[in-house]
Design a protein around this nucleic acid. Sequence first.
RNA 1: GUGGCUGUAGCUCAGUUGGCAGAGCACCGGGUUGUGGUCCCGGUUGUCGUGGGUUCAAUUCCCAUCAGUCACCCCA
Length: 442
Amino acid sequence: MSKPTPISGFPEWTPAQRMIEQFVLDRIRNTFELYGFAPLETRSVEPLDQLLRKGDTAKEVYVLRRLQADTDGPAGDDSLGLHFDLTVPFARYVLENAGKLQFPFRRYQIQKVWRGERPQEGRYREFLQADIDIVDRDTLPAHYEAEMPLVIGDALRSLPIPAVRIQVNNRKICEGFYRGIGLTDPEAALRAVDKLDKIGPTRVAELLAETAGASEAQAKACLALAEISAPDASFADAVRALGVSDPLLDEGIEELVRVVETAAAHSPGLCVADLRIARGLDYYTGTVYETQMVGYERFGSICSGGRYDNLASSGTVSFPGVGISIGVTRLLGLLFGADELSISRSVPTCVLVAVGSEDERPASNRVAEALRSRGVPTEVSPSAAKFGKQIRYAERRGIPYVWFPGAEGAPDEVKDIRSGEQVAAAAGEWTPARDDLKPLVS
RNA sequence: GUGGCUGUAGCUCAGUUGGCAGAGCACCGGGUUGUGGUCCCGGUUGUCGUGGGUUCAAUUCCCAUCAGUCACCCCA
């Protein structure tokens, strides 16, 4: 039997890393619930035609197939694929359950998703997303577009990670502007402009000419728009100064002003209007978000989303929504790689109860039981080795306390192995320092 | 999916113009008749990513494959 090897793009963390991940998920979930989002989990698979309904994500989708499936039999319409985000399944769920839901409906969803892309650092084929969305029936008030960044700002600020900056744009601004200057292929123009950071204005101008059929003057105007960035409503003046007029453009400006001003009022410095942000997914129709960590811009976006008006609709009813999603696995992978996240111990254990001899193990077990009953994570030493070795067992794992049951009626003692301080203690009363009860993530 | 770079001990890396596989750290044992961390002494790390090929002989050369990473594509 040969040694098992990793599978490309399917990361597996160490227990210490998993504890960090669970810590992060707890904090995110807590923030989502603080804002009143209800929990939801959807199945891992969707009918293939649902998944492929939007965009050319086809090549990324993993298809589900039974090993013994009859390859000649009917497969077509009912074949299943693993979902590649949480928005499309959510839209499907809303349509399917509209009758049982109250609108506006706010939900969060933290689940694995799968994409068949070539992996590299911070990019995986199986990864966790933490997603919030709000959908309403027929119309969705614009103020929800301003609420999204506030939730995310609180969630990410509750984590021991670098500060974040949410970059916001509005598709209506781009599309209205492009229409206003006479460009016919706004999608192509968006894709070109999105590369501004990576390839610079000269190449973007060339790309605009090649792929979007832009004239020199049109390309110049697109670049001028894309270069606008401001932490407040002043971006609107800069856009108007470009002298393009279009009703959709005005609508977009109005909506983006509202997002930026709301963010500035509640959370100064969190959001910036950045008119180069485009987002790949084509179902976004209004506000779009991307999120960078300050000082770690090279990591790219760790959280993104936007408003979609047409994702969930059947017949005459439609459910416009807005959502945003934290790339938890990406975030962790990048920060692990940069050695920017650590935890104080590799196990949950707070106290190791020493065992004097195997005859005395029952006494140690009773101590552990008493501590656990009061919420102190406790394990009993694996063997009655020399105390030095038992202490080392704890030290290797970062367990802060070792408990020595008193022999022959003597009081028990507990030792903080970091300071070496050892004091008499009773298992029914002693409590560890607050910070020591659980592993500390930093 | 396309192309480039990389793969030797748990970790960081040497090395072999093809001839029995190394260092530091970590780990284990002892010095220390049971309270660790310092120090001293000793020990083990290993299908040299995997599978083929060439060769008397391959960790070394060749091919394939897997994994990691970078760029493209796309995106969390």
